[in-house]
Amino acid sequence: MSGADEPIVLGIETSCDETGVGIVRGHTLLADTIASSMEEHARFGGVVPEVASRAHLEAMTPTVESALAKAGLRFSDIDAVAVTAGPGLAGALLVGVAAAKAYAMGLGVPLYGVNHLAAHVAVDQLEHGPLPKPAIALLVSGGHSSLLLVPDVAREVVSLGSTVDDAAGEAFDKVARVLGLPFPGGPYIDRAAREGSGTAVAFPRGKYDDGTLDFSFSGLKTAVARWVEARTAAGESVPVHDVAASFQEAVVDVLTRKALQACARHGVEDLLIGGGVAANSRLRALAQERCDAAGVRLRVPRPGLCTDNGAMVAALGSELVAAGTAPSTLEIPADSSLPITTVHV
């Protein structure tokens, strides 16, 4: 199938604070619309599940309408509906799943309940074309830090490692708070770090040489807090730029090191990085440097496709349709802890 013959898939994503609606035709992105409730969560220093669920219900209809308008389509043009069935916040997922079922039922088209993490992988195809098989994927955000072996994103995803405590993005948020920077911390740390030195403070790198492909960021986060407190207690000022840069260096050093170890161990020459933290400029730079040295091709979608969005769900739905996968039933549950090995439900 190619071009105008390919089915048009509507994708719905509500696993966290973003109401994302995307529309794709094959690997072509037709619309990607997002309503975020992040502003409502900022004062709480983290995403509040009940606030997110309320916002999804309010935002869904207008976001779907605006995606259709942007794509220049009508409801009747939609050939399939895909939705994040998990993992994510239970109450937030439930709103998206209910909407997707109703759209699929109302339009008389197939429904595909998909895995959020696999969708983060699939979205890159909208920008860089078909994903080499196999590929290694590093997914890093406020909710996940995972290394995956992806033989075929529509059929099989294997978990190689994940965080044993905090997600990478969560560590960014917590360190930002310690440094008096706003929530969400990622972009602020990135910005502050540009004026500092990544080698100013030698922060610990958890699980650096433990031989696994797992991550740990809790010790690092605590080490930063201790360092800042000791400085403050001694009556000295805190060099925010240097602390931000050194913390960020510790995170991206471990992430890229383990990602390249994964490529080497599995003899894979293509690395994909996705998730909100993939927008981090230092992560992109160091990953490129190390991939070049190792002869690995690096793929990172543009920042707007790295963070949670509906296009990624539509992209995976489109893969499932192309692979001839049987659609989901209208009984599928939202599963907050859906394992990565389950690409679709």
């Binding site: 009940e50 219900l57 869904m60 209809t61 109450g91 439930l94 909407a99 997707a100 759209y103």
Partner: peptide, 19 residues
């Protein structure tokens, strides 16, 4: 209970929109 209400209202709204 809010979760149940949201399922019902989201379903009604989305279904109505398609029709």
């Amino acid at each position: 209970p809010y979760t149940g209400l949201r399922v019902g209202l989201m379903t009604a709204t989305a279904l109505a929109a398609t029709a």
